[in-house]
Design a binder for these strands. Structure first.
Lengths: 342, 342
DNA sequence: TAGGTTAGGGTAACCGGTTACCGAAGAGGA
DNA sequence: TCCTCTTCGGTAACCGGTTACCCTAACCTA
């Protein structure tokens, strides 16, 4: 029923090869023939069947992006950047949502559906160090995040430790000494959580300050709600707090909300800082000091690495590079910056 | 090079038909044969080639979701819901980003790439009434938004007018009379903008209040930044404002940020309300009164309509229904609700 | 034991592109 | 004018599944 290349060829009085040549802009087609073919195409309303092309080409022009959740602003903004970068390279993005669950993440790595696309950009959250070998796959894969999961896969990492350290130092420079950390969670051994916690701890240690574990508000998920709960738990311990470092921005914003509810002023009573530089933090009241991890660069780098790998048909295990994008600290009102236009 | 069904068949000593039967869980396969086949599959590490399957089936198991931008929280949250709903029905989601640009939107409707998926869920923003005929496509399509673009396509709409009206009435009930509206823009004749503006206008008219156009802050894009700029323009006109209605939440949050910068208190000096019920508004300081448009229901309904249509191979133009999801107003601190835990 | 069912599974065509290989026609040179 | 080179375009095999159609063997019944 649908119009095929054969139909177009017949109509134009040429062969399928010629139609294919025209459609794919190959050389060696006279302009006369070309216009005949194009005319036939538009008369017949011919549209290419991508499944057929994909089958014979062995490529699909799609890549998969696997992230925990779209509703988390960091991943929403990242997805946007990945989609744009992929489009620049002629690729379309299929989104897989893992919910940050280890099982879903393993499934994404191995499912048959994965084979519908040419490669995978994967932001793991639930995987454990013991799962590292599961990343030795036979298709192009680029991981977002540090190579805490050792393996021979390309990684594009942000400077988690350096950024956390810098932002903590910033809090200390402002004279804060009783710094709470929100979001830290032991079991996240492999993820951004432990690295950002590490940066935080290092900065405190260097300043000769001992961190009171009662100022740690754990949060397994990183959302505004869990950030708020963690902040409440810390405050309820009745221990003084003059600064809060949220391991990411939504945690910090959730914490800030609780400070607001409790009548504590930010930054006068408590300074607050986060990590990620989501747009929301530029417009919150007060605006949020944070770490800009270089999201755009991360997305672009990941896409380019992946597409290059796809293009040269490189086996996935050809030795993984780790590219680290430098973080940058952004000072705003929540740590004492002047109120100014967002 | 890759393992095919033929290889599996040879290894298991059966025919491809039998392997196919096993893989697709068809009846009429003895358990003995079945386990032989499964063994062969795992020994050879066979993985199905989806391009081949798609070609012969004529379906791909993917749907396209076309939205303006992921970084807009409403669309991020919507995408999440669509992805989840699609997964329930066995579909994967390919995301197209239109940027809200008319040209990109038309392109999404007709491009060859569109044919890579079985159907399209489309949230138009830049299309104009004159483009309505472009929606008469020959594949399954479900539109998000009112049928302001008349046509015979399925629509899943939110109660834009009713919601805007209700939230405006809410502001008026609080005694506010000098209500600014942020985001209104004439040229958006077909979109949510004009409908929400309409609901706003109706509520004012009913209360016998005349809207001073100087209290309209236009914004073509709906972002925090444009909301902030629009609010600034309104305030700079030196006309009194005791309430602000943002046509969506990010506009309202951008406006709230400007009120904060100008030292105006919310809600004491100015009450603020939005539309969309994005999560951010539950945690902003103060939290944001808004309209909950039934996002989850919209996403689920859209996916189910689309999948049903795909399943029965219905031509897209078989008469479009319009399903309207009822909005619900959510009162929070920004219009005087008590401060309470988010 | 013959005849009729039914379950199990094989064969080969088909989906709609791509492309290796080949042949013909036109251009240019001797 | 004849021959070579290049351009242009045709033929048919192939990508790897699905499935219509057909055959066989085993199981029943009388």
């Amino acid at each position: 029923m649908p119009v095929t290349m054969r139909d177009v060829a017949r109509r134009a009085g040429v062969s399928v090869k010629t139609v294919s040549n025209v459609v794919n802009d190959f050389p060696h087609v006279s302009t006369a023939t070309k216009s005949r073919v194009l005319a036939a195409i538009s008369e017949l309303g011919y549209r290419m069947n991508f499944s057929a092309r994909n089958l014979s080409l062995g490529r699909t022009g799609m890549i998969t992006l696997a992230v925990p959740e779209m509703r988390l602003p960091y991943f929403a903004e990242l997805s946007d950047e990945v989609i744009v970068a992929a489009a620049e390279r002629g690729y379309t993005v299929l989104v897989e949502r893992t919910g940050g669950l280890r099982e879903r993440e393993l499934e994404v790595l191995t499912s048959d559906r994965r084979r519908m696309t040419d490669g995978l950009i994967f932001s793991p959250l639930g995987l454990r160090p013991a799962d590292a070998h599961r990343l030795e796959v036979d298709y192009p894969l680029v991981l977002l995040g540090e190579r805490s999961l050792h393996g021979s896969v390309h990684h594009v990492a942000m400077g988690n430790v350096a950024g956390a350290r810098a932002v903590t130092e910033h809090l200390l420079e402002r004279g804060r000494r009783r710094v709470a950390v929100i979001g830290s969670y032991d079991a996240r051994g492999a993820g951004a959580g432990s690295l950002r916690t590490q940066g935080f701890t290092e900065a405190l240690a260097e300043a000769g300050i001992e961190h009171d574990p009662r100022r740690t508000g754990e949060a397994i998920e990183w959302t505004r709600a869990t950030g708020a709960e963690a902040m409440r738990r810390v405050l309820d311990r009745g221990i003084g707090v003059d600064a809060v470092y949220g391991l990411n921005d939504v945690l910090a914003l959730g914490a800030m909300r609780v400070l607001f509810e409790r009548g504590l002023r930010v930054p006068e009573d408590v300074a607050v800082a986060g990590f990620d530089d989501i747009e929301e933090g530029r417009f919150s009241c007060p605006s949020l000091t944070t770490v800009q991890p270089g999201r755009t660069e991360i997305a672009r780098t990941a896409v380019w690495l992946l597409v290059d790998r796809i293009a040269r048909g490189e086996p996935a295990v050809a030795g993984g590079r780790e590219l680290v994008v430098g973080p940058q600290i952004i000072t705003r009102e929540s740590t004492g910056g002047a109120v100014e236009s967002a």
